[in-house]
Simulated assay, not measured.
Amino acid sequence: MDDTTRLLETVGQMAGGIAHDFNDLLAAILGHVEMLSGDLAPGDPRAADVNGIRHAAERATTLTQQLLAISRQQVLQPTVLNLSDVVDRARRLVQRVIGDQIELITCTPRDLRPVKADADQVEQILLNLALNARDAMPRGGRLTLQTRNVDIEDAAAQRQGNPPGAYVQLTVADTGIGIDPAIRKHLFEPFFTTKEPGRGTGLGLATVYGIVKQSGGHIAVESERGRGSRFDVYLPVTLEAPAVAEPPERRSRAERASETVLLVEDDVAVRSLIGDVLRRRGYRLLVAEDGVQALKLADEHASPIHLLITDVAGSAGPDASVADAVRARRPETRVLYLHKPFTPDALARKVRAALASHIW
Rank of each mutant, 00 (worst) to 15 (best):
R327L: 01
V94E: 02
L63H: 07
R6E: 10
D290G: 10
T333C: 14
L83D: 01
P45M: 08
C107I: 11
G217W: 09
T333L: 04
P45N: 07
S272Y: 04
A294I: 08
P197D: 00
H301D: 05
V75I: 12
A313Q: 13
G317L: 04
P197G: 01
G217H: 13
V122Y: 06
I53C: 14
P42H: 08
M1P: 06
M137S: 09
M14C: 05
Y234F: 15
A47F: 07
T310K: 04
Y209I: 10
Q65V: 07
D49W: 10
A56C: 03
T343R: 08
R334V: 07
V312E: 07
D21E: 12
Y167M: 10
R253Q: 09
V50N: 09
D290P: 02
I359H: 14
R59D: 12
A323H: 05
L262Q: 05
L81K: 08
P138F: 03
V233M: 05
E265F: 01
A57F: 04
L127N: 02
G31P: 04
I183R: 10
L63E: 01
R6L: 14
Q146T: 12
R253H: 07
G200K: 06
G275V: 00
S303N: 10
V264K: 08
V97A: 15
Q158W: 01
D21P: 00
L126T: 00
T61R: 12
A346Q: 12
L30Y: 00
A313D: 13
H186Q: 10
D154R: 15
L286W: 04
V233C: 13
G38R: 05
W360N: 09
E265V: 00
L8G: 08
A41D: 08
Q13M: 06
D345P: 01
T5D: 11
R230K: 13
L25S: 11
V233F: 08
V33Q: 11
V97Y: 11
D118S: 12
D24M: 03
T79A: 13
P344W: 00
L112I: 15
I70M: 14
A133F: 09
L263T: 02
L263R: 02
T10F: 13
Q124R: 12
D319S: 15
T175M: 03
E9Q: 09
L336C: 12
I305Y: 00
D345Q: 13
T175Y: 06
D311F: 11
Q13K: 10
D88N: 12
H32Q: 12
I70D: 04
V115D: 02
S215C: 02
S315Y: 02
R349N: 00
D85L: 07
V277T: 00
T64S: 15
